[in-house]
Design a protein around this nucleic acid. Sequence first.
DNA 1: ATAGTTAGTGATCAAGCGATAAACAATTCA
DNA 2: TGAATTGTTTATCGCTTGATCACTAACTAT
Lengths: 234, 234
Amino acid sequence: MKRKALPKRIHAKQKRLSPDDRRKEFVAKATEFFADEGFGGGTRDLARRLGVTQPLLYRYFPSKGDLIKEVYRTVYLEPLDTGWEKLLCDRSRPIRDRLQEFYRAYTAVIFTRKWLRIYLYSGLKGLDINRWYVGVVRDKILTRIIRECRHEAGLPAHTRPTASELEMAWVFHSGIFYYGVRKYIYESPVLEDKQQMISDALDVFLAGFERVFGSTVDTGRAPVPAAGRAALSL
Amino acid sequence: MKRKALPKRIHAKQKRLSPDDRRKEFVAKATEFFADEGFGGGTRDLARRLGVTQPLLYRYFPSKGDLIKEVYRTVYLEPLDTGWEKLLCDRSRPIRDRLQEFYRAYTAVIFTRKWLRIYLYSGLKGLDINRWYVGVVRDKILTRIIRECRHEAGLPAHTRPTASELEMAWVFHSGIFYYGVRKYIYESPVLEDKQQMISDALDVFLAGFERVFGSTVDTGRAPVPAAGRAALSL
DNA sequence: ATAGTTAGTGATCAAGCGATAAACAATTCA
DNA sequence: TGAATTGTTTATCGCTTGATCACTAACTAT
């Protein structure tokens, strides 16, 4: 591209990017690379994919582990905190709309081959950042969802969710999450229309939640239907 | 234990097991080992855990890959096919009981650190056996569940499930599945009572399914409530 | 007992790994 | 222009990996 004089040695490509751009490029492509190969992938293969030589990586990152940490940081933190909490709590809109929009936006971020694979790999490594992320989902998302569901059902919404309620929110959330795993990790055929999946899942969850945990306010049913939470009879 | 005369060399332990027992022991412990370390774990570490030397592995398995294949086989195939299909289709019992018992049994098999980790690792490798397993779950479990749900809701139960119905079964199933992942992979606190989680999830799913996909037969509601499957309004 | 078979071991190879040091090339500034 | 600086490569080190080979010791059959 931009080469003044032919160097004596035949260096196929010598870009000489600004350090900051180079670093960002390294982290971005390393994310893809480790998503594909797992974190056992070699630094030589990674460098080949980057179009540079392997030792150059060590000018930008002290060790492979540090590069990986940076990959984690960008994957986990970059897409987060985009006003989702406020969206979930905006009671001027119907709860169903809020949840639908939230999950549309949330899945638009995490339903990529890259994100899901890095997430699963880091989960298998038992990393702290993964535990932290699970905690964030629980406290910032699921707890709010339950609060809003309670409010909708005419239940007191200011107390902390019960363990059972939280668990149901997890089951619902994980069900949606696994749609992405099936599609991008297992590469299994899924319902092509993601929005409909979310919509249906929401319908099932909201209807079921109210019926199982809801009060008598607007249903006329007993608070906890006997058939609904019956003990296992076998 | 059983040593006639002290050998000249100090061989700490020389068990000399029958080949068949040895092989089984190797596969079993290799499963645990790879579940812990991932399939990148070294053969030397594995051998150390087995209490033998590394070359001995190659007397029983031509290569590390072959050993791993055998691990897959035992993990995936061994616990399968225990009459679950018949259980699901036994219409002499209430559908809720059947599903509850099925998921109690199913999760008793797969909710182990070992099973879940091997499953996730193999999924990330994109192995055929993993795709096969996903197909089995879809055809042998979820399709039957939907058929029974339809029967329960007074819908025709002999036609193949729609893509939407199948997707909802996946969301439900995955939600339960991920309870195990949260507990054994992320080691995150979960609702201690697994049975209650299953029970509640079932209640939500059954109530929601009937409301979203159900007919008018026993509910007196419109077949597809307008509010239930409304298009997203944003 | 003794010969034959085979489970198990120690030593080692070639290849690949992460990481380092020194040489070189491109840019910047005097 | 020439010196200093910094990005990039070549060459290489020490270590680990999967795999192999020759050998030893335990079991089996006669």
